[in-house]
Amino acid sequence: MRDRRLWLDVALGGLFVAGAFGFGVWAEEANPYRLAQARTVLLYAVLALSWDLLARTGQLSLAHAAFHGLGAYTSVLVVRATGLEPALGVVLGGLASAAVAIPLGWVTLRLHGIYFAIATLAFSEVLRIAANQIAWAGGATGLVTVPLFGGRTVLQYLFLLGVLAALMALSRALQASRWAYAFAAVRTNEAVARALGVPVVGCKVAAFAVSAFFAGLSGATYAHAFLFINPLESFHLGISVAALVAPIFGGLYSTAGPVLGAVLLRGGEDLLRERLGAGYPLLYGLILAAAILFLPRGLVGACQGWSLRRPLARPAGRAARRAVAEGTEEA
């Protein structure tokens, strides 16, 4: 059973990546505006899926804005100072975020639930204040920078698609490995996890570092795609919010959920901006609250529940349905 689901996921993921690839090649000539929009969608899909990696250990992070901004600032500052190729700067941005995440996580990941959320929220607000105050980092005015891949949107898009594909593969591989059980144990009961020999803090720090690496990568790519960064936008709390709303809406602790959530929410955002102007995150807030109240397992979870409830064509169907009704099978 497990194997078949693995292949199904690989096929679905491959289909998604192939479709997105085809769209990019087609849109370069036919619809550059949609291509630029799709690039933003991919930026957020990377943020959302990387956020979910840490969430799987039960930690609610509001530091994604911090890692996004750190990646952006590192890359822009290094490229400005040394004239390095922006593509290398982007990788450096990701590494810098991961390097900051390790000591930060080592100290703060011992905190639980709300304490960790507050600490990470405070951390990203302080980075924003610091970037605002430090003159060589551009201060409140911000910095301009050079474009990634000579400013060819389609190459930037394909690069992000590659990053997302790698992250999806990593996420799916983690789910198929022993780590998935370790993460789930840490999430549900830390004391039990520790008693079973799971290195609790180590697990969390590793997840935090990988999560931060991809957030930094996304932030640095954003900087070299939009060519301008400032403290308010690079460290905006809205980035952390978008990174967590997408997985919750799409389905937590899964590979498809965060990507699906990001595509639906970001894709629909331009429509919202036209209708609601600057107040468009209103809908993000409502979706977040409604998802918690009515859709606690997200779209993916709701679809799984629905497909399990449908009568199956095979003889095993009745037994499976009864098992689900009695709640004996883990959905």
């Binding site: 967590l244 209103l282 993000y284 409604a290």
Partner: peptide, 21 residues
């Protein structure tokens, strides 16, 4: 606790942007 936090977080974003609208 994660869900409780996220619910109030959603309320916060919604109220803030309702005021913007």
């Amino acid at each position: 606790p994660l869900n409780q936090t996220l619910l109030t977080f959603g309320l916060s974003i919604a109220l803030q942007n309702l005021a913007v609208v």
